[in-house]
């Protein structure tokens, strides 16, 4: 646990030292803020004291935002060779994976936390369904961990950050759109499977305030599968053939 914390702290401070953190915070908050308050079906247009618009926007901004964070996690270390240094320290592969995972989650958490004043503003404007808001925030965090899992996995299979970025967008698109489309175009058991795999249903029900353990399980299980796959990739070097 201690080692995970040390690695996460280093990763997080690298984000802030290299300006990545600031740029992504500004971009994330700028985009989400613009669409939540000023453009399209924003808060004023809907005429309800709800920050539902923010959740639907964040759903998309995080989709681009997170692969940009995770792409360097393993790809850069493999490219520069520092992964060898890290893996020969007194840490396990899981310490490294969880360290990087929590560093990304912490940065996303910080970004999302900066949107809390919007919640307070809406609250000031009218009566808010507090439960739904907190559920929405929880949903964002759960969805973020899924994206981070996917991102860490794609970063672990290549030396190139761009490839990692594009691959995780590609996998992300499947969960975000393509599974949904497939579910609508086939029938029977396949439709049920694709429907289950699609993120949107699960996220929507959480962000509406329905806290169902099935949805939580969905996000956590995809995250777990991705992290286990990452570990499998990392530990290939230790197989005696």
């Amino acid at each position: 646990m201690n080692k995970i914390l040390i690695i996460a702290k280093r990763e997080l401070s690298t984000f802030f030292d290299s300006l990545i953190a600031y740029i992504l915070l500004i971009v994330f908050l700028g985009f989400s803020g613009f669409f939540t308050w000023l453009y399209g079906s924003d808060v004023f247009l809907s005429g309800q004291a709800s920050i539902q618009p923010f959740f639907s926007i964040a759903y998309w901004t995080l989709f681009f935002f997170i692969p940009a964070l995770t792409m360097k996690m393993f790809a850069e270390e493999k490219n520069t060779g520092t992964i060898e240094l890290l893996l020969t320290k007194a840490v396990t592969d899981w310490d490294i994976i969880f360290g990087k995972f929590f560093a990304c989650l912490a940065l996303v958490g910080i970004a999302i936390a900066f949107s809390l004043p919007w919640y307070l503003t809406v609250w000031w404007l009218g009566p808010v369904d507090h439960g739904a808001v907190w559920c929405g925030y929880l949903g964002l965090l759960l969805m973020s961990s899924t994206y981070i899992g996917i991102g860490l996995f794609t970063s672990s299979i290549t030396n190139s950050q761009i490839v990692a970025f594009l691959l995780s967008l590609l996998i992300g698109v499947f969960f975000l759109i393509i599974f949904q489309v497939l579910a609508n175009s086939v029938s029977g058991i396949l439709a049920t499977i694709f429907d289950y795999l699609s993120i949107s249903n699960h996220f929507e029900s959480i962000s509406r305030g329905v806290l169902d353990s099935k949805n939580i399980f969905y996000f956590l299980s995809i995250t777990a599968v991705c992290l286990i796959a990452t570990e499998a990739i990392l530990s290939r070097r230790k197989i005696m053939e």
């Binding site: 280093r10 690298t14 030292d17 520069t80 060779g81 020969t88």
Partner: peptide, 16 residues
Amino acid sequence: KKRIGYLPENNPLYVD
């Protein structure tokens, strides 16, 4: 691993 000190080839370091 705790008792080994290692300097890999090309000396990779976190340059930032």
